[in-house]
Nucleic acid binder design. Structure first.
Length: 569
DNA sequence: CATTTGGAAA
DNA sequence: GCATATTCCAAATG
């Protein structure tokens, strides 16, 4: 508040952080602990202070006094009194309500608080009365065990977070070991941050800390490995839920490679297969699938088909509402949420907090980058102009056609060639949507093209050549999305992208751009035709990647004199 | 049995 | 705010 701080704290609980400010980096680091990044356009990053962001911070042991002090320190101007007051109120509610087992009644849980007036307030909330609350003493009330989840969910929504200390049902034992995938003799090793995050989840031995909750880690940080390590600690039958089939296959591959579990102990529960085994991997989609509109969710029974000791929710920010409902009923089972980005849509984020658990650990991507665990990625959108005849064609076409014309803009070839020159000597992958465009590029650049119709054997050969370095340029269609063994590259060029799937995009990027030998840098370019609808979609993708922590820059190409490509320097 | 088609979700 | 593309699953198809 000395007039020089990097942040502006506004009355609506948003915080503007100035990018060019010398204190930017330090402030960013602080804010990431107790605020949510909302958007990051040109010169200011916007964060928001919410009850949830405060509780998550508190769950990680941050004290109210410290948070308030940090906010004051960073703020350029006097922080609005109302903001400080509200934050203090939010934080004062954390940890005041504890849920534990009843000593007398096995079918009941006790909700207790050292502050009786707190319980008074709750008894006066009409909407939670349906969960059969009974006031037994000044400091205690009881509820039936079955309402554990829904009560927490409601109270959290109403602003009263509950600390769940009931503990867990252990589930069916399953004995296995982790192993190094390369040589069976080498013990499995975790990176330091992976160890820390697993410890944060498992918690102390008395089971009051950790237990259930969410770990936030950037793409490429090895989330599956952390999941495996958590399984290893518990040694119980496990249900793993993820966002799509590709990810299901990836989990299964990792389980096979890095654990002593036999193939018969690992099941895939998807549209194709319906295996329920000691370790089962499935998607959210199949769980919420209904044959007819008014049919029940016939796959939800998966939650009860075995005696699971652990449920892993991968990409927990994508968890759909019906799965929340079932999750509310199985609060006795340990739950681990994994994500690269905590959700921003309200309600849903609160349900993750109350039903899966608080944020137990967060690894800032920048730290991983500095320590060399993931590559430093530079993302760049390049605006490619259209030729005059093409522009005419574009303006005459409509809807779908428009997009395709823009995507297949032949002017992109020139840009690709330039990029290849700049990054000579690196392994480059070109990714595109339309086969015609890719074929053309393949001919012009003398590089092999992998499409869905290419036989598996041939693909593997090309992947191998690329991996060994004897081949340095590969063009792939969207089969890249499904290839589990897609090789490593340090430059990705997207010549035409899909409209929606931002998450797919980030996943692709995270997988393409693993740590690099040498300078540990990687580049990702998106080629977008200037002045067309393609831009709008690219904008959405950008936002997503920015949320993930990637830096994005936009570059215009001029028709002739191109100047230098600073992006590569 | 593999591929195509349709419907639902978000 | 509507529409649209995307994605998955399941039923139909040859």
């Amino acid at each position: 508040m000395d007039g020089t701080g990097a942040c502006l704290v506004q009355r609506d609980f948003t915080v503007l952080l100035e990018k060019e400010h010398p204190g930017f980096e330090a402030a960013r680091r602080e804010l990431s602990r107790f605020a949510e990044l909302v958007k990051s356009p040109a010169s200011f990053h916007t964060y928001r202070l919410t009850p949830l962001s405060m509780w998550n911070a508190a769950a990680q042991g941050l004290e109210a006094a410290e948070i308030l002090e940090r906010i004051r320190d960073m703020s350029r101007l006097e922080v609005p009194g109302q903001v400080l007051k509200e934050i203090t109120l939010w934080l004062s509610r954390y940890g005041r309500l504890r849920l534990r087992k009843s000593m007398e009644q096995p079918g009941e849980l006790v909700l207790e608080s050292t502050a009786p007036e707190f319980l008074d307030e709750i008894m006066n909330l009409e909407s939670v009365q349906k969960w059969e609350l009974k006031r037994v003493t000044e400091t205690m009330l009881t509820i039936p065990v079955r309402n554990r989840g829904v009560l927490k969910q409601d109270l959290t929504r109403l602003g009263y977070p509950v600390q769940d200390e009931v503990g867990y049902h252990s589930g069916q034992a399953l004995s296995f070991k982790l192993r190094d995938q390369i040589a069976a003799g080498i013990p499995f090793s975790l990176r330091p941050y992976q160890c820390e995050s697993v410890s944060a989840f498992i918690g102390s031995s008395n089971g009051t800390e950790g237990g259930s909750g969410v770990l936030v880690l950037p793409c490429g940080a090895g989330k599956t490995v952390i999941g495996l390590a958590a399984m290893d600690k518990l040694q119980r039958e496990t249900l793993i839920l993820t966002s799509n089939v590709t990810s299901v296959r990836q989990w299964i591959q990792e389980l096979r490679n890095k654990s002593t579990l036999s193939d018969l102990e690992i099941g895939e529960y998807s549209g194709d297969r319906k295996e329920v085994r000691p370790v089962t991997v499935s998607t959210y989609q199949i769980l919420t699938h209904r044959s007819k509109k008014e049919d029940g969710f016939k796959h939800m029974k998966l939650f009860n088909e075995r005696d699971w000791g652990l449920i892993i929710y991968d990409e927990v920010h994508l968890l759909p509402a019906p799965v929340f409902r079932v999750t509310a009923e199985i609060q006795a089972t340990r739950r681990l949420g994994l994500t690269a980005t905590l959700v921003r849509e309200d309600g849903c984020e609160k349900d993750v907090f109350s039903l899966i658990g608080p944020k137990l650990y967060e690894m800032p991507w920048r730290d991983l980058e500095q320590e060399g665990w993931i590559a430093q990625v530079k993302c760049c959108e390049i605006r490619v102009p259209m030729s005059e005849p093409l522009r005419t064609k574009y303006s005459l076409a409509e809807g779908r056609q428009k997009f395709r014309i823009a995507a297949e803009n032949s002017g992109k070839l020139k840009v690709v060639k330039e990029l290849l020159e700049i990054h000579a000597g690196r392994q480059v992958l070109i990714i595109g949507q339309y086969l015609g465009q890719l074929k053309h590029l393949s001919e012009q650049l003398q590089a092999p093209l992998i499409t869905g119709s290419m036989p598996q054997q041939k693909r593997i050969e090309l992947f191998r050549a690329f991996r060994s370095g004897s081949l340095s340029l590969l063009i792939v269609s969207k089969v890249a999305n499904f290839a589990v063994d897609l090789p490593d590259a340090s430059v990705g060029i997207e010549v035409s992208g899909s409209f929606g799937s931002r998450q797919e995009e980030a996943q692709r990027l995270g997988r393409l751009l693993r740590p690099k030998s040498g300078d540990n840098r990687a580049y990702f370019y998106t080629l977008v035709t200037d002045g067309t609808r393609e831009q709008d979609f690219a904008l959405r993708r950008q936002l997503f990647l920015i949320e993930q922590g990637y830096e994005y820059s936009v570059q215009l190409t001029k028709d002739d004199d191109d100047g230098e490509k600073e992006a590569a320097q």
